[in-house]
Simulated assay, not measured.
Amino acid sequence: MLEVRDLSKNFGGLRVSRHIHMALEKGERRVVLGPNGAGKTTLFNLLAGTLQPTSGEILLDGKPITNLNVEQRARRGLSRSYQKNNLFEGLTVGENLALAAATAQGRTFSCFSRAHESRAIRETVEEVAEMVGLSDRLDLGVAHASYGNRRQLEVGLALATKPKLLLMDEPTSGVGPGMIDAFHKLIATLPRELTIVIIEHDLDLGFDVADRITVLNYGEVVFEGTPEETKGSDVVREIYLGDWQGDA
């Protein structure tokens, strides 16, 4: 489904991502872990298309997407949620979802209200709202939504585009234990054919939701394995306990 080959990113003389290799099967839940400054967000932006690599290649469904922009990658089935809320404050939860669904379906509307006239869009909105636990919040103005509801909506916007591959950037950042539990349940209910990459710094979350875990440090992959293998890794333990001696 997703393959990353020898991916590197330099900013001037600073190499932030170093020769990264990853391969994900269809339907896999991959969590990318690492301490602050490990290069997780840079990798995420390279996958999403907001950054272009200095070298290397990215393939989706066996086809190169390295030189495609964000919109072109979205048309190929790649969608993302953001670490920080990126919502339309003046619209309701339902209207935000409808706009995402309309865009994904290639529809344009001179008047936004016409989006709700489409049965296909209404069905997508209802389906996605159920997935992310917002069925009873569709008429709520985003400006008045709680932080937790906004995080749920961020995921919903990505799902409304019907992606093959979903990138999630620290989806539980800033939320309490109750919302973290809700996120775990959300991941469990998503269609298994949907491939997911989650960028995280929280070890516990990674262990709970991942099929496989990739660990970054100083921009390079230093470990990859199952959650159980990750728990037993001396390399991972050293990184998180502060004893890592890698080349910075």
Rank of each mutant, 00 (worst) to 15 (best):
V32K: 00
A158L: 10
P64R: 03
E123Y: 02
A120N: 09
P163V: 02
E28R: 02
R73Q: 10
E3F: 07
L33I: 05
A143R: 11
P177S: 15
E25F: 07
D208M: 13
G49E: 06
V235F: 01
P177L: 14
L68P: 02
E228F: 08
S146D: 08
R137M: 14
G219N: 09
H116P: 07
H144Y: 12
T195K: 06
E229Q: 08
G39A: 01
L159E: 02
M1T: 06
A129V: 06
S110V: 13
L216D: 04
L51C: 02
R192A: 15
L33C: 14
G246C: 01
F112T: 13
R151M: 01
V128R: 05
Q245L: 03
A160H: 01
P191I: 01
I199C: 00
R212W: 10
R137P: 12
C111Q: 14
P53R: 03
G62Y: 03
E224H: 11
H116A: 13
S55K: 05
V142D: 06
S233M: 03
F11D: 04
G106T: 06
S173N: 07
T42V: 07
D243H: 11
L134N: 13
N45V: 00
L33R: 03
M168L: 15
G62K: 03
F183C: 00
G141A: 11
E229N: 01
L87T: 06
E95V: 04
L24W: 05
V222Y: 00
L165M: 02
F183T: 02
I199K: 09
E3A: 10
L24R: 02
T92P: 09
I20G: 00
G174M: 07
R119G: 13
V235G: 04
F183A: 07
S113M: 10
A102R: 09
D181G: 11
A120T: 15
I213S: 01
R18N: 14
L134I: 14
V209Y: 05
